[in-house]
Design a protein around this nucleic acid. Sequence first.
RNA 1: GUGGGCGUGGCGGAAUGGCAGACGCGCUGGACUUAGGAUCCAGUGAGGAAACUCGUGGGGGUUCAAGUCCCCCCGCCCACACCA
Length: 935
Amino acid sequence: MAADDVPPFRYTAALAADIELRWQQRWEADGTFNAPNPAGALAGPVADNKLFIMDMFPYPSGTGLHVGHPLGYIGTDVYARYKRKTGFNVLHTLGYDSFGLPAEQYAIRTGQHPRVTTEDNVANMRRQLGRLGLAHDNRRSVSTTDEAFYRWTQWIFLQIYNSWFDPSHGRARPITELIASFASAERATPHKPWAEMSKVEQRLLIDEHRLVYVAEIPVNWCPGMGTVLANEEVTADGKSDIGNFPVFKRNMKQWMMRITSYGDRLLADLDRLDWPEPIKLMQRNWIGRSAGARVTFDSHAGPIDVFTTRPDTLFGATFMVLSPEHPMVDVLTAAANAEAVAEYRKAAATKDQFDRTAADREKTGVFTGSTATNPVTGKQIPIWIADYVLMGYGTGAIMAVPSGDERDFSFARQFGLPIVATQMPPHAWFQSHQIAPSAICDDWKEAYVGEGTYVNSSNETLSLNGITSVSEAKEATNAWLEHHGHGEGTINYRLRDWGFARQRYWGEPFPIVWDEHGPIALPDDMLPVLLPEVEDYAPEPIDPNDEITDPQIPLARATHWTAVELDLGDGPKTYTRDLNVMPQWAGSCWYEMRYIDPVNDQRFIDPANERYWMGPRAAGDVGGVDLYVGGVEHAVLHLLYSRFWHKVLYDLGHVSSEEPFHRLFNQGYIQAYAYTDDRGQYVEAEEVVERDGKFLHNDRPVKREYGKMGKSLKNMVTPDDMYDNYGADTFRLYEMSTGPLDASRPWSTRDVIGMQRFLQRLWRAMVDEETGACTVVDTPADDATRKLLHKTIHGVSEDMDALRFNTAIAKLIELNNSLTSLSATPRDVAEPLVHMLSPLAPHMAEELWAKLGYTESLTYAAFPVADPALLVENTIEYPVQINGKVRGRITVNADADGKAVEGLAMADAKVTEALAGAMPKKVIVVPGRMVNIVV
RNA sequence: GUGGGCGUGGCGGAAUGGCAGACGCGCUGGACUUAGGAUCCAGUGAGGAAACUCGUGGGGGUUCAAGUCCCCCCGCCCACACCA
């Protein structure tokens, strides 16, 4: 059958594979996509126009790729190839985020060293992606696990470590400048003058100011895995993402990075970025800046600070609530209450985060037995502890204003605490609750949080009564607080400092050693600190219910490595190395810059190269990567951390750009249907058929679900399947045709054939399927075809610039379909069509370009430009509407004016018939578009 | 709960406020065939013989004109989730 009927040069999967592999080899051999730098080892002549385009780099996981993974990579490749053809020097490559938990877990499962599995996985991904024909500069592909890479990760860490944040300048400065200002007494030191401090005292004071510091903080402790986890590695129900072990909040000594110092700038500079609004919003919410006041309440055990966004309601603060973890709870608890408090604290500590933070829970809490003084009323108010107050936000203590805060209200009702109104709600509010208006809150059913006239809010020196505006009352209260030393207006952030250490193996070692006083940074010339070999790199699991035992850090087993003799300026001494490794995010915080200068062994990046590829293009511009494409899942983590590191490097003068990623684009996801049988087992999705709206597998009904693609869901389709059955060009085209790049869409193998047919038709329009000879003729195209060609060029260019590849493909199909009615394809259409095809289906385009007689790759050959003269129509067909419904059509010379169009419309036979003598009230002529007659 | 996004043929999706459904899949018919799960050609929103009518989740509004703008409701997706 059949196979031998297929003409030898029909564009089949086999021919596609032949073409694709040949061109991929040639591109590789010629270094076709190598982009020159202005300076350094990769220097060459550079164009003024440049485009630095990036994908979020992948984890080299062991399971390989499915067809969902390359969506963004294809998108950026199409765009990059298009821009190359419009004169841009394009930097595009892809590296690997190869440190971290996934690689380590995979290595542990397979029993091999993480480096071996990582390198295997990288090689496999390179093969799968290489077959796609991505136009990457492979000289620039780096892995975060390369020693030559993480050497600079450690170097940047040291830059941050050796800096402090100067609030008066709002930026980071070298720590040496802080030391100088202490030494010159320009800046005061606490307790005693700098000169009188011992070396160790000086050191500890300086350490307090560094952007990297050690602190005892609550972390996500997962005994089952023997490590601390990042927030994003903990599932919504308080279990570890991998292994499903319980996770506990627990205090532990941790390396921290002072990202909160940059809260204001990270927030403000969002306005200067070309990012999707939803992502900016997520970052704003994550940073969570709120303006309010710090208020000090005095107690017998000392002052207690609270943060409030509503200082104006201070007169209504009838009790205080502390987080169970608050450090003052012990000293505030009276003997009679000690047992209840201890019990409550224990219950809160063992509750996992999910239970603890589940919203709309009934309020719980206990009284400490102590009171504090409300600074404006002078009254004693009880101090409670309750788990709805979180240690991780504000000061871990609140003033409770039940009349003005929903949570405080339900707590007060729960425990019968007094409620005092400070604002009179409007009548409508009382009406909606069907209660009589009153500032006595006995009947109130909820707190009132809006604007309202202040009542019950005065003392001898402050009166808010009669004020109607919240902001005015806030200002008055803040001024009073500051004047009387009870607090001040302040800004609070939800953002916490970044916990920067992991007790694992597969990460960057800290370039830090310890002596008996604390940590000491290694000098730059001792980098890199290589990850030592150990017998067993798996973290040691601890009984999942054991919250006490400290983590057994894998690097501690490298006994030959942990103790090291060094001369750090005080003569040779034995130091202990820091045993932590950096979190997954470290390498991705700066990898875009290593793409620019991948082999530079003098600096992490040459300033000239950074300026060229990332520098600001105009005054006030933040600079950065021109286009960064990736999924939304990194909205707040990677994208916030990398902004933070970049800003530190900017402050220290290492880069000219203020932001790493100028423009961000979120690609959608490819999703897939999966099917389960009556036992709930997944069945092969490819074998399921649809009949009469029901889904059947071997004639048995199955249930359909929609979501991820994966091996375990038996709905995984791999790029290799696509290469085998259709070829890479068809696969690329299919992925780009199914929708706009930022939209998620379902995978449908059945639909792929459409793009293969398109390529087959296009191939057949230029190549004889029997002989493989080029059939393009030199006779010029007819006018109609030329017009369609230029309309297509115009539209496709616009679509390419706007990343609308789906509509660009539709336009190319239209043009190609019109060619099939011609006896032969004219060269003056064939060549531009091949150019327009080349970003999308580069292999076929190269092959056709060669058949058209060219020997050079068309990678840098100019993209066609539409002739404006051919874009204007000589005549225009106007639909003529009567009251919005089309009743006739007229064909009018393009240069006819509105009056003429109106005249012709009114004279049209169908129109006069439909009008039936009725007098038009108004005639609207939209030039070039339509006519609407209103009767 | 709060914030954000999205609802268009059987399916994926097109449409600067201006002729809804480009393009592809599927489907129907035809061609070539001993054969078609290959390829090519034509048709394909619904109703209707046709003229025509109805159609973008539902309801209202603005406009000469609404898928598009405004208000209310319903549904789905995502993020955050007692943030003081």
